[in-house]
Design a protein around this nucleic acid. Structure first.
Lengths: 371, 371
DNA sequence: TTGAAAGCGATACCAG
DNA sequence: CTGGTATCGCTTTCAA
């Protein structure tokens, strides 16, 4: 059991050191279990410590013979650098801070997956903070993260507090804001235009021939709200809007909530014939509830979902959805960060519109034949 | 733009220091932007550095007046400790390493959520590693994590490589293995018995009166395999087993795959009348495909899912499932770790069986009336 | 290209 | 309960 190591293992670090350097070294050498340090490698290779450091961090600055000699010593001793010492001396870690509003949301899992995919082979670590959709929590986390001297930071959205923005603008690391497009980034950004996405959803429903479009939205963060705004705008332009068909709740989204919200929608305006759902959980809930009520989809009710997680296209009928490139956003954000860390100001396109895509499936259909 | 700070901001740390301590201090003081250190606080409060350190880490060891004085100075200067320096001196960080086999899997998101919930108010950070269900990748990550001197480690399952186990047993931190029960933990463990869970699923289906039970499983890691073993065992004991009704694939689970696997199952033995699904994605896929084929659930086909994510109970019919306490496991793992960090050997119950629960819903039913 | 010396900012250990 | 001193292991800076 590892736990015994707390009790039984001789720990050289607890011993008192004498003042003499030689004695100290003697003591150290006697402890066979000590992890080798840079100095140990330097001695073994008969070079200075700084040369070893150089060989590891920028081998191109060291002559080939030297490199071989040092690398052999590193290999022989099984040396690996101490990140804490490195961070203390250089004032920067290899941590990349990632602030997400939720961890139990397919959307952010996919982002996470993209980030991890790219970060895997790099020297960097991801440190995740869960802001729970709160700007204040985010502010606190930004403070904590910055204290650690991260190599870079990835934030969600543009809605940081004033104080947070201030801290960030004086941070010594590149920053990417993800999942949104159209705001003013602190440094770099990659995401899509939520209003345009909502607008596109409405345009599709209207084009299909639905005449009483509505939408349901859960947990209205700034981005979902803009999606609904875009949806409403398109409907208003087509003169098909009725505010009763906007059903929202601050609760966080789930399939159960989606079912419930269809019920609410019908109670407010039973003429509704198409629904844009804030995200896939809700979309699936609306579909299931419609089926339970024997409302035929897409004939009596068209459904357009948002994000398009894997499941969406396998529903029956398959859900039409606005697909968002979450994995790609995560990947790109990390790549932008990496480029900036290696070479400040090297990223030319600092604001990227990742776009989105309307996937037409069986939960909506062209009703033209009906007219 | 933050990026300008790379270029324009005067950086005191780049300046050369003179040898004289006083001159150094003078230079430092002149730089108003420097972050205050422990020594700065000590001077402001007119105490020694170590006293400040103590006041922050273990206030109970410091006299009340002293504490007030120091806290005032901390407040006034806006001091916050440097984690790198602390890590270097104390040989331990405030990082908790978490190794998960997948990040895009509801199961682990829920675990993550439980861990974050508890860790939020502590001084610890979670550092996640994605092993992608590979013991070798896990081994590499364990090495990397251990190098950082974590305060604790959370691993998934008992299937570490020999080398990994060796590294772990000599690690100086508590370790919790999660999601499984019945193996030999390195230190502590919390999870459930997968074989028993599979057995329980089969027992339920058999009890309902289904006579040709089968099961479908995707991505067969050690734990899912044991679930299937348990299922098979119960069926064999009831003399109802036919190996053709065991359909598996190494692919990772998804709803699409679930649909596909029902097709495969039917092609191998169309008499199958009940299916245990390795997890919820598959379960939902099987349900959707059954509906598409007009196979009536639960009459012609009983379905029992595994894990029971939120969506499962909202399907129509609602899916019977073995519910697993993922959130609780995460929470408990972190709490066990915390207790051990604060007080080694204080956790008495080092191996916890979290159990699971059979949720009977409409996708299975007692067929007794039929006989 | 290589090296010497001086930190980085905290904690450990023992003494008083 | 408080303080002095010596580290922790690496990088920075400047000189050779």
């Amino acid at each position: 059991m590892i736990a015994q190591s707390f009790v039984n293992q001789p720990n050289v670090y607890r011993q008192k050191y004498s003042i003499s350097y030689d004695k100290l070294m003697a003591k150290r050498r006697s402890s066979s279990s000590r992890k080798p340090t840079l100095v140990d490698v330097a001695k073994a290779a008969n070079v200075s410590a700084i040369t070893v450091s150089r060989t590891i961090r920028s081998p191109e600055l060291v002559s080939p013979q030297m490199r071989i000699r040092v690398e052999a010593a590193v290999e022989k001793l099984g040396y690996s650098p101490d990140p804490a010492a490195s961070a203390l001396a250089s004032r920067v870690t290899h941590n990349i801070g990632l602030l997400l509003p939720s961890l139990t949301n397919t959307v952010f899992e996919d982002v996470l997956d993209g980030i991890y995919e790219v970060s895997e082979e790099t020297r960097f670590f991801i440190q995740i903070g869960d802001t729970r959709y709160s700007a204040l929590k985010e502010e606190a986390l930004i403070g904590t993260f910055l204290r650690q001297k991260p190599a870079g930071l990835i934030l969600t959205g543009f809605e940081q507090t004033e104080k947070a923005r201030k801290m960030l603008s004086s941070a010594h690391c590149p920053i990417v804001q993800i999942m949104d497009y159209g705001g003013t980034p602190i440094d770099m950004a990659v995401g899509f235009d939520h209003e345009a996405a909502g607008y596109a959803a409405a345009a599709h429903l209207i084009e299909c021939g639905y005449r009483n479009p509505g939408c349901v939205g859960a947990r209205l963060d700034a981005r979902s709200r803009r999606r609904l705004d875009g949806f409403r705008k398109a409907c208003q332009e087509a003169n098909l809007w009725d505010e009763r068909r906007m059903v929202t709740t601050p609760q966080s989204s789930s399939v159960g909530l989606g079912r419930h919200m269809l019920e609410e929608m019908l109670s407010k305006d039973e003429t509704v014939d198409a629904i844009f759902c804030n995200n896939d959980d809700i979309g699936i809930g609306v579909l299931v509830e419609a089926q339970r009520r024997l409302i035929s989809v897409p004939d009596q009710l068209g459904i357009c979902s948002f994000h398009d997680m894997e499941m969406t296209k396998h529903m029956h009928p398959a859900l039409t959805a606005i697909a968002t490139p979450r994995y790609e956003i995560g990947k790109m954000a990390f790549e932008m960060l990496l480029a900036e860390i290696d070479q400040p100001q090297s990223v030319k396109k600092r604001i990227v519109n990742s776009g989105f895509e309307l996937k037409k499936r069986s939960s909506t259909k062209n009703l033209a034949g009906k007219f």
